[in-house]
């Protein structure tokens, strides 16, 4: 999550308090937008590649991933 004094413009928001590092969102992203950090938690590595297909959000078992809607950024 972004700190209060920075604006997070990522197309995908990941709740680190809920992510259990299963890797589903990373593996099945068709554009490889997401990568694992050192603890396996998903981070947005290539935001410009996101096509907003929402497959990461829909397949997240932990309700931790959300793709911003058009116009939210």
């Amino acid at each position: 999550m972004s700190s209060p004094d920075t604006v997070n413009t990522d197309p995908v928001l990941i709740d680190r308090s809920l992510c259990k590092a299963c890797g589903i969102c990373i593996a099945f992203c068709p554009k490889k937008v997401l990568e694992a950090d050192e603890s396996g938690i998903a981070v947005v590595a290539h935001p410009e590649e996101c096509i907003k297909c929402r497959m990461c959000e829909l397949r997240c078992p932990d309700f931790a991933v959300m793709v911003r809607s058009e116009g939210d950024e």
């Binding site: 709740d15 308090s17 809920l18 259990k20 590092a21 299963c22 890797g23 589903i24 959000e57 997240c60 078992p61 932990d62 309700f63 931790a64 991933v65 959300m66």
Partner: peptide
């Protein structure tokens, strides 16, 4: 959590007990 789902969940009960990767 995912804001699209939040209104339907008891957020204070999360994270859930299911294992990492459980569907």
């Amino acid at each position: 959590m995912n804001e699209n789902l939040a209104e339907y969940f008891r957020g204070d009960h999360l994270p859930h007990i299911w294992c990492p990767g459980c569907g």
